[in-house]
Structures are given as structure tokens and as C-alpha cells.
């Protein structure tokens, strides 16, 4: 099953829409609630990242009985140093974003911690690509 969501840069109000929809789908599929929680937390962080850093982005979800795979592509500044971005507490968020309660620098590490498989690639000046896989039966 495939689902697709658009995310607007700067729209923190609607960030969370995709994770709420995915959550509902996984509940209907009778997935384990602890697994649902990991998916939703990882996806919400990723949605907020697009809202905080990118101009816009697309989230594609592919679900089968084994796993959920989330592909996130944004048009944005990209990440020059991915290794540093993966360090807990490291953040490039603007002070305006921090004032809204986001940008504490836990986003990417938190996504990785909740995913079974996590791939991140980025091109400076173009955008970032994330692949988050969570197995539904483990």
C-alpha cells in the first residue's frame, strides 16, 4: 500500500499530519502499539525537520505485511556534514525555530534510534533524502 503526503517548509502547524495519518493506518492494520509508536515518533521528527529547514518536501510511505518504508525527499539547503548532524544536541536551527520549541538537535539521532534501517543522503543546495524502515513483526 502506498501513501503520499506533502510538507510545506515553515509550516509547523501542519507538521504531524503525515504521522497522524500513518498512525491511524497502522492501528487499523493491527500492528503492535510499541512498533506504531516508533514509526510515528521517527516520522514526526522527520516532518518537523522538513518544516524547519527545507522549502518543501514529499513523504512517501510503502506498507506491506513485513515492514513500513518511509521515503522523505525535500528541496532545501541540504546537510554539509551529516556525521555532525547525527550528533545528539547538534543543531543548525535558527533562533526563530528554537523559540517555537523545535530545533534542540535531537531530530536525526532520534529518527535513527526508532528506525530498524535508516539511510540519509544529502546534497548541499538541493535537498535531503531519508529512508526509514521499521519492521512490523519483530
Amino acid at each position: 500500500m502506498d501513501l503520499e503526503f506533502n510538507v510545506q517548509g515553515g509550516d509547523f502547524v501542519r507538521a504531524g499530519n503525515a504521522s497522524s495519518q500513518i498512525k491511524k493506518v497502522l492501528k487499523q492494520l493491527n500492528a503492535d502499539s510499541a512498533i506504531i509508536k516508533r514509526v510515528v515518533v521517527a516520522l514526526y521528527e522527520a516532518e518537523v525537520n522538513i518544516a524547519a529547514h527545507a522549502y518543501d518536501g514529499v513523504i512517501r510511505a510503502n506498507i506491506d505485511t513485513e515492514r513500513i518504508r518511509l521515503l522523505l525527499d525535500d528541496n532545501g539547503p541540504g546537510i554539509p556534514d551529516i556525521e555532525r548532524a547525527m550528533t545528539p544536541g547538534y543543531s543548525t536551527a535558527s533562533s526563530a525555530v528554537r523559540e517555537m520549541g523545535f530545533g534542540a538537535g535531537m531530530g536525526l539521532p532520534n529518527i535513527r534510534a526508532n528506525a530498524d534501517e535508516f539511510v540519509i543522503t544529502s546534497e548541499v543546495g538541493k535537498g535531503t533524502h531519508l529512508e526509514i524502515t521499521v519492521y512490523l513483526n519483530q
Binding site: K24, N30, T65, N137
Partner: peptide, 23 residues
């Protein structure tokens, strides 16, 4: 104990088929 009302089927494969029909 949870007793979820949202699941379309106990079996995930069946639930997925049902969800595709719903969609």
C-alpha cells in the same frame, strides 16, 4: 490491557486487503 477497536482484522495481511478495499 488494550482492546483496540480500530483494527480491521487480527491478521495483518487480511487487514491490509480490507484497508485497500476501504480506500
Amino acid at each position: 490491557e488494550p482492546r483496540s477497536m480500530l483494527k480491521l482484522d487480527e491478521d495483518m495481511g487480511m487487514a491490509m486487503q480490507k484497508m485497500e478495499r476501504v480506500n
